[in-house]
């Protein structure tokens, strides 16, 4: 049993949990994930760790309530327990020293890129973050990012907050050479983001929904900017045993749990990944309907 020490609501359906898991915390590095199982009848799901405190023996998970398991988890609070937390799993993020590194996070994907910021900055990179959501409420971790990044751009599709447009729209601006030339002529003290604008983007780290990662990868491909994406296929064991998380990278089958979860975004077959993620759509709906029915019965 693993105890939840703290549970904080980040948005109406997004929660951040601090969990007592000393063995996981001890070796955790940015980019790694855990597999959790809520109860004896639960399924195993992978979740990327947003943070870990080795001394305190805790890890942080940021979870959006989508399916049955994530909804059940988001109902939990400090003092509640989770049956199983296994990890750390997956390879740590490849940290590339760059004149300008851009982190792109969509929704709770922001929890995946957030832990990289400090490490990249410690390594001497100038770090910008682009975080976005459909609407203001879905932009998470912005304040946390501001603490560890040089520049942060918040984007909303509906323009309710920050930049109006998608994270890809924002990135397009950042990597546009014409814009860089234009803005580099502005004196730094007159332009808060001049630092970012002057530096050519050398690497992009990206996590979020599959269509978003695909859009980012398509954007950086012609510019030849190295792009690392964190993939989220369906997993069962997380140790390479089942092969359910296989993804196609440069035409080769790879297992996200042992070979990833991060890959070269320009080599990923996103269409196949998106399609494989729909394999249990019928069962997922059934499980949710059943859960809601039980909730109705209880009230």
């Amino acid at each position: 049993m693993f105890r939840i020490l703290d549970a904080r609501q980040l948005a109406s359906d997004v929660k951040c949990f601090r969990i007592d898991a000393p063995l996981v915390a001890r070796h955790r590095q940015p980019g790694q994930f855990v597999i959790i199982r809520l109860s004896e009848t639960g399924e195993r799901i992978p979740l990327t760790m947003a943070n870990a405190d080795r001394a305190a023996g805790t890890i942080e998970l940021i979870v959006k309530a989508i399916g049955k398991t994530t909804r059940e988890l988001c109902k939990k609070n400090a003092g509640d327990t989770i049956s199983d937390v296994m990890g750390p799993l997956g390879n740590p993020t490849e940290i590339i020293k760059a004149a300008h590194a851009v982190l792109v996070g969509g929704g709770v994907g922001t929890a995946v890129i957030y832990p990289l910021a400090q490490t990249l900055r410690d390594g001497g990179s100038f770090v910008s973050a682009i975080t976005g959501g459909r609407t203001r409420e879905l932009v998470v971790l912005e304040a946390e990012l501001r603490n560890v990044c040089d520049v942060v751009y918040a984007c909303t599709d509906d323009g309710s907050y920050g930049f109006r447009g998608t994270v890809a729209d924002k990135l397009r601006e950042l990597i546009d050479p014409a814009r860089r030339r234009r803005e580099s002529s502005i004196a730094p003290e007159r332009h808060a983001n001049a630092g970012a604008a002057c530096r050519p983007v050398e690497v992009v780290y990206c996590a979020g929904p599959v269509p978003m990662m695909k859009a980012i990868a398509e954007l950086t491909r012609p510019a030849g900017i190295k792009t690392i994406v964190s993939l989220n296929p369906i997993m069962v064991d997380g140790t390479g045993m089942c092969g359910g998380c296989r993804v196609t990278i440069d035409g080769q089958a790879k297992f996200a749990c042992v070979d990833g979860p991060e890959f070269d975004g320009h080599a990923v077959n996103f269409a196949e990944l998106a399609d494989r993620l729909t394999a249990y759509r019928v069962q997922e709906k059934l499980a949710l309907d059943r859960m809601e029915h039980e909730c109705d019965m209880a009230t």
Binding site: R44, C242, D275, A279, Q283, R290
Partner: peptide
């Protein structure tokens, strides 16, 4: 990599370890 292709490991793990044969009482489909 089409949907509906399993390794035996995945198929058996879902059924045996995760007890997917009792879905939806057990969560694993």
């Amino acid at each position: 990599n089409l949907k509906g292709v399993y390794s035996a490991n995945e198929y058996l793990t879902r059924s045996n370890l995760m007890r997917a044969y009792e879905f939806p009482r057990f969560d694993t489909p």
